[in-house]
Design a protein around this nucleic acid. Sequence first.
DNA 1: TTCCGATAGCTAGGTTTGCTACCTGTTAAC
DNA 2: GTTAACAGGTAGCAAACCTAGCTATCGGAA
Lengths: 114, 114
Amino acid sequence: MKPDGQALKGHLDLLLLAALADGPRHGYAVKEALREGSGGRFDLPTGTIYPALRRIESAGLVTGTWSTVDGRRRRTYRLTAAGRRRLHADRDAWREFAMAITSIVERGPWPATT
Amino acid sequence: MKPDGQALKGHLDLLLLAALADGPRHGYAVKEALREGSGGRFDLPTGTIYPALRRIESAGLVTGTWSTVDGRRRRTYRLTAAGRRRLHADRDAWREFAMAITSIVERGPWPATT
DNA sequence: TTCCGATAGCTAGGTTTGCTACCTGTTAAC
DNA sequence: GTTAACAGGTAGCAAACCTAGCTATCGGAA
């Protein structure tokens, strides 16, 4: 499926961190994990994934190491302690955010402006 | 509460449309409705609200009319037919989006990369 | 042999869009 | 007289995701 315009803004880091939560993955595997984990909803272009991984790497949330498998260069990322903390914090923030949006959007007519 | 960085990107229009779903409101009332409807979570600055209302107005999703109450200028916005359609579409898109994020974020360790 | 798709990585530049900071003005409270 | 709440607005910044394009390997199809 195609990207959502701006909808992902501010939530991509959470997705990347979540995709690395159970162990190291290289960039392409992160991309596949997000696609499969979302039922095809988040089929993000590599131009979104790779710069974002670099970004959170330089923020100290993940560390990346190079390796070569079958002649293909791979950069494998793993969560740092800070990344894991950020994952938990962002997950909480997401829950709060989603609840707030939902509470506004999923309601019948508003109570009269008291 | 303070703004969420980039988290709102792409979802603000939905909130504005939802705030106007049960009847016309002027800009300031929209701001208050979002603050109250979100339990204080979305206390958006006027510099966010007013330009965004203008934006969705020029997109044909709402229409605005001037009036004066107690010497205060008010611009009251109401949904157009297109705005109501967009509201429904965006609400569906939000549900899908939230489900997709949640399904990635709210899980134990990923199934092994098969 | 050549080509293509999947895998794997990368960058440059554009665009959108919310936020910061600032402004005008009225009414009511202190 | 000053402040707070109400009501509207603009200019310009900055984040960051997306588009478009690039290199390169490997396996299978044509």
